[in-house]
Design a protein around this nucleic acid. Structure first.
Lengths: 229, 229
DNA sequence: TCCACATTTCGATGATAATGGAAACGTCCA
DNA sequence: TGGACGTTTCCATTATCATCGAAATGTGGA
């Protein structure tokens, strides 16, 4: 009567502080060279390489060689969401420094969750889309309604194209700072991409945090009826 | 930039196969003497005691002394739900034996998730309550509507009493076999208790599985419009 | 009072696994 | 071609931790 092998291996992945630090760093959805991850976790390159090899073997991260660098990233959005969800149980990390608290505020406000937007902004957008009848929640799925089809098309998204991708089209992702759901899947990714293309958001350097621009404020108010401070 | 201490400690709790087996056994919400848990995990009483002490220190389980036995149980429903959710990521365990597959079928059908019903039956009931307009989903909350108030009262639940409990009144709990939400919180517990009182369900011995009675079949059809096989 | 039994504490053992030094490999650049 | 650099592989060290035997604690029953 033992648990699935996977449960234990996934849990032990997170249970090691060094690996947890690496994963947390990778949660921004970007590619990171091994050296950066070592620095982020406070370990030597050898040790980081050891951990990364282990994670790659489990299929949770993938490598891409570019010159003498090897860029790692989380393999699947669903894994990133799993880690995010796990974070939501433990609650936000205890605040140690002012600088950290400031960073946490930014993360809570808006951040990347692998390849889509998370945080207050994402939750509010998702709520707005449901309220407007563009999305309809059904279990862990978020169905796009007929009006939603029109809305997203007008917003500049190519839905048929997004549906073709080999991943969940539209689904919920639990937000660990807001404890609410936000839009994930191909649609979440596409919407996020589009909003970045319109310069509504800009990524902070070296962080998962995302900054909302003036255009973003205005656009969110006009298109989603959301007032963010 | 390291993760919260809790994240690692909780993860390492699950990452050990023996502890995982113990936790899985405790997921039925019942109290279990230490010896039973040792047997369930396939370890000696000493080792089980060691693990249980560690879990108790983290506050994930609590002890109750009765004579020369010490009964352990999962301290909080939210922790049980956390473990259930974690299971949902890894998916169901690989089937090894026919006996196991049979047991899994039962679990998928109806089981206890700490103190409330889970599995297909629970998901269907929750869906039905939403469809009938008695419950309304709002993020992770499930609001009881005015018609819901009447329905539950008529069903024999004392809602004001349930609201008084020092825990979430009504919330979603992700079902790891169905990958859908079911009703949890004080209301989920109360509803489950009431259905057991009406003899709609009966617990299997030594298992989290729950059997539906003839009365249950009939009642579910009449009250919830659900046809379970 | 004595023994059986459930459980814990203590102590020793053994296995596992994270870590970093040394060195090798491959790539970029001069 | 040679050297700097990012990364990995190999290897030895170390620390941690699960495990169990032995013994202690505490409870119930005869």
């Amino acid at each position: 009567m033992s648990l699935n092998r996977n449960v234990s291996s996934i849990a032990s992945l997170i249970s090691d502080p060094s690996r947890a630090a690496i994963l947390l760093h990778l949660l921004d959805g970007r590619c990171h060279p091994a050296g950066d991850l070592a620095a982020a976790a406070g370990i030597t390159p050898q040790t980081a390489s050891f951990h990364l090899a282990k994670m790659a073997e489990l299929g949770i991260v993938t490598v891409e060689k570019h010159g003498r660098h090897r860029y790692y990233r989380i393999a699947q959005a669903s894994d990133a969401e799993m880690i995010e969800q796990f974070l939501s149980f433990a609650g936000p990390a205890p605040v140690v420094s002012l600088r950290q608290s400031d960073q946490m505020k930014k993360l809570r406000h808006a951040r990347m969750c692998y390849d889509h937007l998370a945080g207050e902004a994402a939750v509010r957008i998702t709520e707005s889309l449901q309220r407007a009848g563009h999305l309809q929640k059904d279990g862990l799925q978020l169905h796009v309604t007929a009006s939603g089809e029109r809305f997203f098309a007008e917003f500049g998204l190519d839905l048929p194209q997004l549906r073709k991708k080999r991943r969940a089209f539209s689904r919920c992702c639990l937000d660990w700072t807001e404890r609410e759901h936000h839009l994930a899947g191909a649609l979440g990714q596409g919407l996020t991409e589009r909003m970045f293309a319109m310069d509504w958001f800009r990524r902070e350097e070296q962080s998962r945090a995302v900054r909302i621009t003036q255009e973003g404020m205005q656009g969110m108010a006009e298109r989603f009826g959301i007032q963010l401070d």
